[in-house]
Computed example of a mutant assay.
Amino acid sequence: MDLDVFVTAHRAEWDRLEELLRRKRRLTGAEADELVTLYQRTTTHLSLLQTSAPDPVLTGRLTSLVARARSTVTGARKASWRDVARFFTVSFPAAVYRLRHWWIPTALLSTAAGALIAWWISTHPEVQAAIGAPEDLRAMTRPGGEYETYYSSHPAASFAAQVWTNNAQAVALCLVLGAFLGLPVFWVLFQNMLNLGIGLGLMSSVGRLDTFLGLLLPHGLLELTAVFVAAGVGLRLGWTVIDPGPRTRRTALAQEGRTALGVAIGLAAVLFVSGAIEGFVTPSGLPTWARITIGVVAELAFLLYVYVLGGRAVRSGETGDVDASDRDAFIPMAA
């Protein structure tokens, strides 16, 4: 595209659109029709410019024009409870379902890595000795030790809030760092699996694995699933940098980035539930089977939510991205 020729050919249309947008009085019917026509044309011009001859100054001007014209044509859009309901019944589950081929393998491989670390620690006394002094390990693993009192060391409400904050930070790291080719996500996963493997391995070495699982599973199933989903989405975002597919890299990153942001918001709600379980159920006086049952029910409910609502939404064409009316306008371009 010859940028000078392009600007010369269409500048009058952009100027006219800007003139209509500056009008203080109410537009006539003919002027309103003209504004809509110019808005559609300028949207196409912007898309052509972004894909063929990006120019920061001109792109900025046309982006502003398109945004102002869209606001004038469609009216100011206000968020409503209907948007919130749609997000949790369509957009969020659709995004998680669509990206299941990323987070399910992530979950399986991470769990296997955690189990391998636990086995290595539990069967190698020299590794245990490298972790801590014998008296420190006894203080952690004995009945009434640190692993057991950890969940009841603070008031339930404040503990649940602290847990939610910590887990939300881990999820945010996976999603934000995914843009860096996904490599930092592996480090976040390794740290989580290492901490889990150490606890499992040390408690297993003293024959108290059942106690540890009874404390971990009520909240850990849902909590770890949220981390795995975030990691999978982060890895998908990183892969988009490498291979955007038929889309331009900018468009692909914008779409997957918006999806990742939506997943982050949805996972915050999921982690709120797991944090409440960890704060109120895990340290409670309920029998172990009852606490684990609550955790299993919460996990199954989330998976059913994703596969039923998300699967239905994806089959109807949803991707987890925002509504088409809220996206940047672009048109497909031949390679």
Rank of each mutant, 00 (worst) to 15 (best):
L20G: 04
A276V: 14
W103H: 08
T37N: 13
G320C: 10
A130D: 12
L200C: 01
A69G: 07
E146V: 08
G214M: 11
A130P: 05
G199Q: 07
L183E: 00
W14P: 03
G311Q: 09
V296R: 10
V176Y: 02
W239F: 12
T28E: 12
F302N: 02
A157S: 12
W103C: 08
P283H: 10
T43L: 12
E18P: 05
T240Q: 01
Y307G: 07
T106P: 00
T240F: 00
G279R: 10
D136R: 05
S316N: 12
R26A: 08
W289N: 10
P143F: 06
Q50T: 03
E18F: 09
G266S: 08
R258E: 13
G197Q: 12
F280A: 05
W81H: 05
V297A: 14
T43Q: 14
R247A: 14
V227D: 09
V73M: 13
T89Y: 11
V188S: 01
V84Q: 08
L222T: 05
D326H: 13
V36Q: 13
G132V: 03
V5L: 14
T282S: 13
G182V: 00
A133D: 12
F228A: 11
Y307E: 07
R25C: 04
S204C: 01
A69Y: 02
L209S: 03
A161N: 02
A301K: 03
W102A: 04
S47T: 01
A230Y: 01
G266A: 08
E148P: 08
H154T: 05
G75Q: 07
E13D: 15
S152I: 01
S64C: 02
D243W: 15
V263M: 09
D4H: 11
L49P: 00
R208H: 02
M140T: 00
V296S: 03
V7L: 11
T72G: 05
A139Y: 11
L200W: 04
R247F: 15
L35Y: 03
L183R: 04
R98L: 14
G285A: 05
I104L: 11
A118Q: 10
D33V: 01
A269F: 15
G310R: 02
E148W: 09
G144D: 02
T72V: 09
V308A: 06
M140G: 00
P283G: 04
L109G: 07
R100Q: 13
S47D: 05
V57N: 03
L200S: 03
Y97R: 13
D15M: 06
W187K: 11
G279E: 04
R22Y: 08
G132R: 05
S158N: 07
G144W: 07
L221G: 00
V229T: 01
T43A: 15
G285H: 10
L224Q: 10
L209M: 04
P105R: 15
I242D: 09
V185H: 08
G245E: 05
G295T: 01
F330M: 14
L3R: 14
V314A: 06
